[in-house]
Computed example of a mutant assay.
Amino acid sequence: MEQQFVLPVIVIGGVVIFLIIFFHYVPFFLWLSAKVSGVRISLVQLFLMRIRNVPPYTIVPAMIEAHKAGLGTITRDELEAHYMAGGHVERVVHALVSASKANIELSFQMATGIDLAGRDVFEAVQMSVNPKVIDTPPVTAVAKDGIQLIAKARVTVRANIHQLVGGAGEDTILARVGEGIVSSIGSSENHKSVLENPDSISKLVLRKGLDAGTAFEILSIDIADIDIGKNIGASLQIDQANADKNIAQAKAEERRAMAVALSQEMKAKAEEARANVIQAEQEIPRAIAESFRSGNLGIMDYYRMKNIQADTAMRENIAKPEINPTANPLSE
């Protein structure tokens, strides 16, 4: 009795395990959904997807979506190849459907190439339909009159599908727009003309074709705000005047130092000459004594010389003004 009861349980358990394994490797209901949707795919192909580690629940819904959208050129092998290459099958199919509805030319090869290049192809198609607005950081520029202006711009861009692979991104757009703003303000005669006509900046920047080689097409550049900054010209003139003053002070100090050095040199020479005179005066008595011994100088010549010296001293004393030390110069 027990054997009769155990045998059906084993059979039922085996059947259940078989069905679980079968429905795991052969997604019957997914095949049925594809069949109802008009997508031709066999159970063997679904089983082989499992063997190749390709999820059928990713490939088959994508095939159904493409078939319902009228994209009959996309095959199962192409979707599998793109998945195994590391691509996003769902995003690619969504992008192709959106591009088809918006009359945007986008092939499967281009879409997969954009996706494998690391860009979100579905977002790119959405940006082609709905342009994106990019706000630039504050751009500082100086007009010819030396007044600094700080401008902010809003750039409206649309994705360029054909340039997404190999094209530059948003950073390049922002850099080029900032360069164009600086060039436009810098070529203005004065800051007032820029404040009066800010659209002149956007017109000049748009004429330069800044979107060349990028993944975007610039639709418009609008100046959102312009603020007045510092007076750079006056600051530069002040800095130049200070620099010139410092140079003049350095040159004057150099001349003063040279004059002081020359004065010290002249004093040294005067001291040297005075020392030579004193030394020469010290030699006079010796020379007179030697002249007495040699007979070249007589006693009368000596007294005559002394009289001349006394007469010279008396004349010098007479020529000097008389100074009374007790007199008060304020009382005179």
Rank of each mutant, 00 (worst) to 15 (best):
E332T: 08
I41Y: 13
Y57S: 07
E253T: 03
I74K: 02
I221L: 05
A111C: 05
E65V: 07
K35D: 15
V39T: 09
D120V: 02
Q148S: 11
L79R: 01
L116F: 08
F122L: 04
K68Y: 05
L330S: 11
A81E: 13
V205R: 01
R274C: 05
G178H: 10
N324T: 01
E271C: 02
P198H: 12
M110Y: 06
A175H: 13
E272M: 00
Y302M: 09
S235P: 01
A69R: 04
R207P: 01
Q126T: 09
F22S: 11
A234T: 00
V133I: 06
K192V: 15
N324C: 01
I238G: 10
N53G: 06
V155C: 07
A234N: 07
P56M: 14
V26E: 13
Q282A: 12
R76Y: 08
I161L: 14
E105H: 05
A99I: 07
A62C: 14
A66C: 11
E290C: 01
N324K: 08
I64V: 11
E65F: 10
D301N: 04
A252W: 12
I161F: 04
S263F: 05
A243L: 13
K101C: 02
G169W: 07
E80T: 13
A62W: 05
I59Q: 05
P131S: 11
I114C: 02
G295R: 11
E123M: 07
